[in-house]
Design a protein around this nucleic acid. Sequence first.
DNA 1: GTCTATATCAGGATAGAC
DNA 2: GTCTATCCTGATATAGAC
Lengths: 199, 199
Amino acid sequence: MATDRRRTILEGAARVIARHGVRGLRMETLATEAGVSTALIYYHFKDRAGTLRHTLEFISDRADRYTGDGGGEGGGGSTPGPHDARQELEQSLLLEFQELPEVRENSITWGELRASAIFEPELRGDLARATLTRIHDVADLLGRVRPTATAPALTASAERLTGLLEGLSTRWLSGALPLSHAHALVREAVALEIEHLSR
Amino acid sequence: MATDRRRTILEGAARVIARHGVRGLRMETLATEAGVSTALIYYHFKDRAGTLRHTLEFISDRADRYTGDGGGEGGGGSTPGPHDARQELEQSLLLEFQELPEVRENSITWGELRASAIFEPELRGDLARATLTRIHDVADLLGRVRPTATAPALTASAERLTGLLEGLSTRWLSGALPLSHAHALVREAVALEIEHLSR
DNA sequence: GTCTATATCAGGATAGAC
DNA sequence: GTCTATCCTGATATAGAC
């Protein structure tokens, strides 16, 4: 079915964004990348802004499958013990640092979004929501590792960890920080925060 | 002397960048902001790239005066004790979070630069250098607080702290994180790292 | 639904007068 | 050194055929 040209276009957009950034997305480039005409893109997505919106949504949805954000493996939703929880926490944080095209595209897109939000207030709402959700998720995982910690302490730790993640992500993407090193830094940060929460 | 139109232009550029980002800098906008014609800008700085280069240099120089990066107050360069050192460390890190136009312009510019470096490899060299210098400076300050810590441990801590700073900076600039909260998070992070280094 | 033009517009850059 | 006027390119968006 050829109507999935839509999908083809969005996949192409994700790749183009990974190469040139949100602000470097040209409709012509995207058309070539997706193997269609620019007119078709306008037909499906109305204008550049619309194309962008759909692409970000597409990337975000796709990311959820990888990050497992509230994924649920169908089977048993039983809360894991502290050991598994810590594993899960590290896993969740490190997932953003992988040498996979999809992950890279996802990281770049979010980075671009965060950077764009500084100048485009319209973007702030969605971004803030997403950030808060992420912080909450991480705080939740931390809470499972250290069930006795207070909510504010958990939130603060989560804010630091996710903040660190965002900073390191940019370094990684700009080639200033090797993946393995990023992993090591994150793991140690997790260790510090967990230890901190046990006091 | 009217040749300080150059300076006027660069100051205007800093303001424009703070509003629209490096990538949103339009020669026309800049001309209006600085109260000159576009032609004059080209006369002084050759082209857009040149204008950008000079502006970044200008902002960077101006920032050094605030950050005191290797500043030196002239008088006595004697190494401060652990108490002062810790003060100095916090001070140095928190200086990037202030509601002053110059500081804001500086933070935004560096953020933009980091984001741009992902897509423009030419920028990576300078950026990596600047980042390394910063990490080294912070590691240095940490070393004065905890003289017994090993160099690798100091570096790792500095990498985490500066990484966190970069992440939080973006959040602050996009209005998602109040200054006071940013300060609190950074202070606690410093505390955690220092404690970590004493073991 | 999809393509081939093509209109339109914004922004970088230059010429030439003063 | 500085301005006014203008050119030129590159990018968004639309018209109309198939």
